[in-house]
Design a binder for these strands. Sequence first.
DNA 1: CAAATAGTGTCTCTAAGACAATATCAC
DNA 2: GTGATATTGTCTTAGAGACACTATTTG
Lengths: 270, 270
Amino acid sequence: MSEESSFLSAYKLSDYERPSVTADIVVLRLRTEDSENYRQNSNTKLSLLLIKRGGHPFKDCWALPGGFLNPDETIEQCALREVEEETSLKPASLMSIGLFSEPKRDPRGWIISNAFVSVLGSDKVEQQSGDDAKDAQWFDVSFEQDNEDIFHLNLSYRDTELKATLKEENSDFGMTSFSIIDSGELAFDHAKIIAKALTALRNSAKDFEVIFDFLPEKFTLTELQNVQETIMNISILSANFRRKVAGYVEETDEYTQGAGHRPAKLYKKR
Amino acid sequence: MSEESSFLSAYKLSDYERPSVTADIVVLRLRTEDSENYRQNSNTKLSLLLIKRGGHPFKDCWALPGGFLNPDETIEQCALREVEEETSLKPASLMSIGLFSEPKRDPRGWIISNAFVSVLGSDKVEQQSGDDAKDAQWFDVSFEQDNEDIFHLNLSYRDTELKATLKEENSDFGMTSFSIIDSGELAFDHAKIIAKALTALRNSAKDFEVIFDFLPEKFTLTELQNVQETIMNISILSANFRRKVAGYVEETDEYTQGAGHRPAKLYKKR
DNA sequence: CAAATAGTGTCTCTAAGACAATATCAC
DNA sequence: GTGATATTGTCTTAGAGACACTATTTG
């Protein structure tokens, strides 16, 4: 037996206490609202998947989907697995937004969680899970800044409305962190995670990194613009958007049909 | 006893296997090389702290400073504690660059690590630790891109030279990940961590976020420009740099002295 | 034709990059 | 004065934002 292998077999990690490690995922998609006017394009809203907790702690509160890390997978694979288990869909993208490790963040014990943002393409979703299961629901998202460092997170589904208030903390590498002022009906530190996720998403949408993931393979430039406007909560002049995005897309020879107005050319991601 | 508290006392986390969790830190500072010409300004190089491993695994290889997470601290506090233990200095900044969780990344067992970049201000360092302890050394850093997705990481200290080769993988949120082609004399997956850290640092230096942390409270604009040029491995025209950075700094009424040429005004971070 | 969206052209203003010119100190 | 750096000015060009205008479809 070599010096190294004998060392390894004798090595014990039992001296240190170990935390449970989970992945929590902010699963996002777009919800399209058909308008009453047949000529008008449909509206898009940002939508977030939450799960109602059946047991303690935080019984009857809403929580992010997530689960424990297994020894044979990376934290990214764990997050992917959890999204697929929960939605039975393959997300278009998955991005880490950091490790949440406050010792007291979970009353059940020492549980730290790496949070992710995951985006589902709008082509696949529609009639899928999270609509029938009573305990999983898609909430419309509104996230707006006060005059100060105060942010209001508003999640609504039919007559259920979750309101949380947060304060902007430090900002490293463009990753903004938040502290919870009022968690509303959200479990654990999940309001904090959602706020950080949405901020990161907005930053990422600035340079067209993530906006394609919300759409099917082929899309109109107006649809793409709507995604950016919805995510960033801004409004853009279409002429300027088209110029800026031109380098990131390529034309197809297909057009939209039967829209009640001029057809639009379909584009693909370059 | 309430329903909730009785539930909590009965709750057990023992069903899941748990990993050991560590923080590894890419500790950086600037090293100033005085030039032979008394008129010339000193040169600056980026410098990285590594520790020579005394035992298996990776005996005699070089590794990042780091240590195990304790139950009463966050991962950021853990990283801060480890830097201070290793350098006996308080870092100017600390930024997470992600969780490294490959199941086989550590031969000793299931150990996952959150990596950080930490910057030490150049005023405090100089004659400090890492110079006398034989097992801790500051290495000059060079990190350059090939024609392809290939990057060469070069760490040198006197006659010791560590060379690693990496391949650029995916890029989420502007966070670029790497895979190791050749790890050189670097332990574990630390070449991967260093590459990701340096890439993140370059991105952050673009918009003047991190460059101040390398300098003392008061500095000249030329010094500040040197920091950005050193980190990003580029060269900038000073006139343009001054215009761009003007909004991030404010003047003092002090000047440099005895430099062998025109004195420079000292500035502070705004 | 009316309503609605799709798509183009152009003006202004700002910021980035390149380069030239001037200022000031130690010796 | 010389050598080195510090600091300012200005020209050109690229891009962002605002706005006006044209094009195309369905009912």
